[in-house]
């Protein structure tokens, strides 16, 4: 079973909402979203993602069992780990790259837990969080995709990843959507 893990920061929200809107209702893989967000704003984000999403979106609790076809958004002020036991663990560890949730943490845990059974996607953002985690995923055999810096609203994050690893694909947002749609086939 494939696991889809997406990281993003500034400029990624419209892309993520577009992805969720265009997924088929029968999309059968679990998807994990680690998006930088204000720690003080706990409500509103997941609700905004749900508005146009064709698949269910949740903020998981600690040790939440993962269900195929569901989307899990890292909660505010917690790191989100993906585990081999098909559950989600949360942590209040130190901020990484000024972020909690940190994309490096989520991607790094995906590398360790899922190995090649994973697709990692890094979107627009204003810092380098996610680059090291994406490299770890690549080193573990996952397929990795970086949003085209030319298209990204803020290209720092995709550029940081491209500096240290060679992705399988550099895609525009519409190519990312098309790739995910084809996965179900």
């Amino acid at each position: 079973m494939l696991n889809i893990v997406i990281g993003g920061s500034a400029g990624s929200f419209p892309i993520v909402t577009n992805i969720l809107a265009k997924l088929d209702k029968s999309f059968s893989y679990p998807m994990f979203l680690c998006l930088h967000r204000l720690k003080s704003v706990r409500t509103g984000f997941v609700e905004a993602l749900r508005l146009k999403s064709s698949v269910p979106v949740f903020e998981p609790h600690d040790r939440e069992p993962v269900i195929n076809g569901h989307v899990y958004l890292a909660p505010a002020n917690y790191h989100m780990y993906l585990t081999k036991g098909n559950t989600i663990s949360l942590s209040t560890e130190e901020v990484v790259n000024h972020s909690r949730p940190s994309i490096d943490i989520t991607f790094g845990s995906a590398a360790k837990s899922f190995g090649s059974k994973c697709v990692g996607i890094l979107l627009s953002g204003a810092n380098k969080d996610g680059a090291i985690g994406l490299k770890a995923m690549k080193d573990s055999g996952a397929t990795i995709i970086v949003q085209s810096p030319q298209e990204a609203q803020v290209k720092t994050m995709p550029m940081a990843a491209l500096k240290i690893t060679e992705p399988d694909f550099v895609f525009t947002s519409s190519q990312i959507i098309s790739y995910l749609q084809k996965l179900k086939e």
């Binding site: 780990y81 790094g108 845990s109």
Partner: peptide
Amino acid sequence: YEPYLLCHRFER
């Protein structure tokens, strides 16, 4: 302790 997080603490 939760082995997954513990391992990450060791790595850190």
